[in-house]
Amino acid sequence: MKKFMLFIIGLIALFVLLANLGPMVLLGVSVWLLYVVFKQFIKSDSTAGKIGWVIAGLLILSIAVANGYAVIGLAAAYVLYVIYKKWQEDKLEEDVSFSAKQDDPFTNFEKQWAEMKNY
């Protein structure tokens, strides 16, 4: 039941992430453009140039604020990450409990040999 709930929550988070993928891309681009505008503002020597860069920065900032839904997408991505880690943790616990049940030395030898070959 625990894995089923993790799967359902992960599926919902995946759909939320996919739905907010566009705003996430636009937010990333607008933050990058704000950085570029700031660097150009610092380099500018004339007052008219600085005013122009401030106006461009305000326009880009309004685009960034309009894509505030991207934060929901970032939260969904984090939820997917946490679910993945939890799923791997549960899988590791199952592997440990399964290998502890096997007392056959040859089975453990084969498993360890396979692990050594992967390195």
Rank of each mutant, 00 (worst) to 15 (best):
A48P: 01
D95E: 12
K117H: 11
V82G: 01
A114T: 10
D103P: 00
I51T: 04
N67H: 10
K85Y: 06
V31S: 08
Q40T: 10
L61T: 09
F38I: 12
L80G: 04
A75C: 09
A56I: 14
I83L: 02
G10W: 02
P105Q: 03
I72D: 02
F106G: 03
S30V: 01
M24F: 11
S30G: 10
A56D: 04
S62D: 12
E115I: 09
F106M: 07
E89R: 00
E115H: 05
F98D: 08
D90A: 05
A64D: 07
G73W: 01
V54H: 06
A64W: 05
I51E: 07
M116G: 05
E93P: 00
E110S: 14
A70V: 06
K43A: 10
P23S: 12
G52V: 03
K111T: 12
G22Y: 14
T47E: 12
L27T: 03
A19L: 10
A100Y: 10
G73I: 05
A100H: 10
D104F: 04
G22M: 11
I55V: 15
E110L: 10
K101L: 14
F106S: 11
K117P: 02
G22E: 12
E115A: 05
A100N: 13
L33I: 04
L33R: 13
F109V: 03
V96S: 01
I9K: 07
W87Q: 04
I60M: 08
S44R: 03
A100R: 12
K91C: 01
W32Y: 15
V65N: 07
T107F: 15
L11S: 14
F41K: 01
K39D: 15
G68K: 09
L21D: 02
S46L: 01
K91P: 02
Y78L: 13
I8Q: 13
L92I: 01
L74V: 09
F7M: 08
A75H: 02
I72C: 00
K39Q: 15
G49D: 05
Y119E: 09
W87S: 07
S97V: 08
K39S: 15
G10K: 02
K85I: 03
I12L: 14
P23I: 10
S46P: 00
I51K: 06
V31P: 01
L59Q: 06
A76P: 03
F109Y: 13
Y69D: 06
G52K: 04
L26T: 08
E110N: 06
S62L: 14
L59R: 04
D90T: 09
I9C: 03
A48I: 04
M24A: 07
L6S: 06
V79G: 00
I83N: 02
A66S: 07
Y81T: 09
K85C: 03
E94S: 03
Q88Y: 06
L92A: 09
I9N: 03
G57A: 07
